[in-house]
């Protein structure tokens, strides 16, 4: 009986050793070894050809090179990026799926409890912000307005292309605004402004730069603390001074959310050392002069912010008190019927 039992025991011990060895090697594997020769998927929550897609495809090979991994880009359009974000939240925590997410849009969606938003941004490991839009307020050359004062003293309602920054702006400055909803994307409302169909809109400086050249749309001021690199002569709303505390809060919120920009994020639950490693890699790529030059060449400027900072900003935005949250919600949802 002993003799018959021995081989089994031997096998069991062998198996256990192998298992332990395997487990050890997996545990001891450093993140840079882990990514070696793996396939990493970059998810884009929008279709091919747009800004998100272009940026992701631009950056993918550089990130792949640093990781020693193959990076494939996958378009998963739907719900303005929310469908992809919903799926990311329930993804495998292996750190092999990374999404280039619309941080600012997602933050507002979560704040107002948008239908279809099933994610909690505070629980996601943010890797880095790559792009920040420096939003600028433009007026149509066909409108009677040219300055903030003109807008503030407007007798007729100012026809604004509805956007979150525009709604917040109108509320903070108590402008007499009429939000026009329904334009699909910035191209359409820039055209509408050129035609004089709307009086004003807000748009990232980088997107509006070329259209503004003809003088048919005129920059008035920049939202946020920084001037746009494309409109250096256009002052920011904070430079204007004499903002009340209440106004500062609203513009601060806008600025914080805008700070989330377009950011890389991975699935929740990824091991801390992997997240740290990915953050390092993204920091290297996004600060690489070659990458920055390549992005500038196609007029897609980069603006790096560390994953830690993004995480902090997400926390700050989402931790506002219940009363403020209600105000934001009421304001942003007010135009809905």
């Amino acid at each position: 009986m002993t003799i018959r039992f021995l081989p089994h025991l031997f096998t069991a011990i062998l198996a256990a050793t192998v298992l332990i060895a395997l487990g050890n090697s997996a545990g001891a594997q450093s993140p840079d070894q882990y990514y070696e020769d793996k396939t990493v998927t970059f998810v884009v929550g929008f279709g091919p050809g747009g800004g998100y897609d272009t940026y992701t495809r631009l950056l993918a090979p550089y990130v792949g090179e640093r990781l020693g991994a193959t990076v494939v880009v996958k378009n998963q359009p739907g719900g303005r990026g929310m469908v992809a974000l919903n799926q990311l939240v329930s993804g495998k925590p292996d750190g092999l799926t990374i999404m280039f997410a619309p941080g600012h849009f997602a933050a507002f969606a979560q704040l107002v409890g948008q239908e279809g938003a099933r994610f909690d941004l505070a629980k996601l490991p943010w890797l880095a912000r790559a792009v920040r839009a420096n939003e600028i307020v433009f007026v149509s050359a066909k409108s009677p307005y040219r300055t903030i004062e003109d807008l503030a003293n407007a007798k007729e309602p100012i026809k604004f292309s509805a956007s979150q920054p525009a709604i917040i702006l109108c509320r903070a400055l108590h402008l007499n605004c009429k939000q026009i909803r329904g334009y699909r994307g910035s191209k359409q409302f820039v055209l509408a402004a050129i035609r004089g169909e709307i009086d004003a809109f807000t748009l990232a400086g980088s997107s509006a730069r070329k259209a503004a050249e003809g003088g048919q749309i005129i920059p008035v001021f920049a939202l946020g603390h920084q001037r746009s690199q494309y409109f250096k002569d256009t002052p920011t709303i904070f430079e204007r001074g004499n903002l009340t505390a209440e106004q500062k809060w609203w513009f601060g919120l806008e600025d914080d959310v805008r700070n989330l920009g377009r950011a890389f994020v991975t699935t929740p639950g990824v091991a801390a050392d992997r997240v740290a490693y990915l953050r390092r890699v993204f920091s290297q790529v996004l600060n690489d002069p070659d990458v920055i030059a390549a992005a500038d060449k196609i007029k897609r400027p980069l603006s790096y912010l560390s994953g830690e900072e993004v995480e902090k900003t997400v926390g700050k935005v989402l931790s506002m008190d219940a009363e403020r949250r209600r105000q934001v919600r009421d304001l942003l949802l007010s135009g809905r019927k």
Binding site: G50, K187, V190, L191, K210, A211, E213, Q216, I298, K299
Partner: peptide
């Protein structure tokens, strides 16, 4: 619209617009 304003008239034209940029040309009002 793509050529006259630098504003693509369709999604396909938006992609073409991206191609203009890659090639160092930039459609706009001028």
């Amino acid at each position: 619209p793509t050529l006259a304003f630098g504003i693509p008239g369709s999604v396909a034209m938006a992609m073409l617009f991206g191609a203009f940029l890659i090639l160092g040309l930039e459609p706009g009002p001028y």
